[in-house]
Amino acid sequence: MNEAISGREEVERLKQAFDLVLPIVQEIFPIDVMFALTDDERFLTYLPGEEVKVPIEPGAAIPSKGGIRQALEEGRTVSANVGAEVYGMAFKSVSKPIGTRQGNGRPAGVLTLGINLRHQQALEGAAENLALSSEEVRSATNEIAGTATELAAEIAELQELGRSVVTELKKTDEILSFIREVSENSTLLGINASIEAAHAGDHGRGFGVVASEIRKMAESSASSAREIETILKTIRTRIGRLDDTLERCSSQSEQQAAATEEIAASMEQFTTSATEIRQIAKVL
């Protein structure tokens, strides 16, 4: 009997402290909360929050089901999430048994804390959105990084192709040199043939015509060789510029690939952080 009285006295002392201290605690609490104190049958005191509140009054009987009843019957702290469909708002209840009654070790009462889950749900939603967004960004950056790598490979291929073209163009120098040599020899041949034709008089007239055509052909060949050489120089210059441009593009694409890989790694960290935020939200 003394144990029962001690348990009830503990509940009464807690009620007095509850009435005095908990309004202050509620005011400085960072989130919306409510408190309730019961004995083993009824609610003794109830302090609603700003949003989180339930329709109970001091003296009301403890429901036959729920966290408070479970804490009384099992003698342990019970936590449970109550959906918005029950009281119009979602909250988490934590019911802690206090005291003992009638010498059987069962609690003499229960102190219950109700925590508004609106902030938790908002935090979970934000974490979910962050996880989805970071996953989308990570996928996009991975795709960009892959594209940049492919672009760098294609640019390198173009550079190699340009170098091979320059190499092939250099081979034309030998051909042009041969054409110039033939042109010069043909010019000399034409001059000599003209001289001989002149010495032959009327008998060398036909030979003179041939000599003249040879000189014309030699001049035309020399002119064409010069034009081809000019064109090839222009091509070499432009290929050189193209190679420089491709070199810059290659460097930029490599930097882009490296940057997007860093972004992808950051997005991976964001995803991890979002998971941690969800876990923290569940603890609240």
Rank of each mutant, 00 (worst) to 15 (best):
E85H: 08
E73C: 09
G88W: 04
Q70A: 11
Y87T: 12
G75Q: 07
S79W: 04
L72R: 02
S64V: 14
V94S: 10
P97C: 11
G67T: 11
R76G: 06
R76E: 10
R76C: 08
A61V: 14
Y87V: 09
V94E: 06
S95Y: 03
G99S: 07
S93G: 12
M89I: 15
N81Y: 13
A60V: 09
K92D: 02
T100R: 09
A71Y: 01
K96Q: 05
E74A: 07
I68V: 15
A84W: 02
P97K: 00
A71R: 01
L72E: 00
E85Y: 05
G67Q: 12
G99V: 03
S64F: 10
G67W: 00
V94F: 06
A71I: 04
E85M: 03
G75T: 05
I62L: 02
S79N: 11
V82R: 00
N81P: 10
I98N: 02
G99I: 03
T100E: 11
K65D: 15
S79A: 08
S64Q: 12
V94L: 09
V94N: 11
P97F: 00
E74I: 03
A90S: 13
G88E: 12
R76S: 07
N81G: 09
K96N: 03
I68A: 05
I62D: 02
T77H: 01
F91D: 10
P63D: 04
G99Q: 06
K96E: 06
A90V: 12
Q70L: 10
F91V: 11
L72N: 02
S64Y: 10
S95P: 05
G66C: 09
G66E: 05
G66H: 04
G88F: 03
M89H: 11
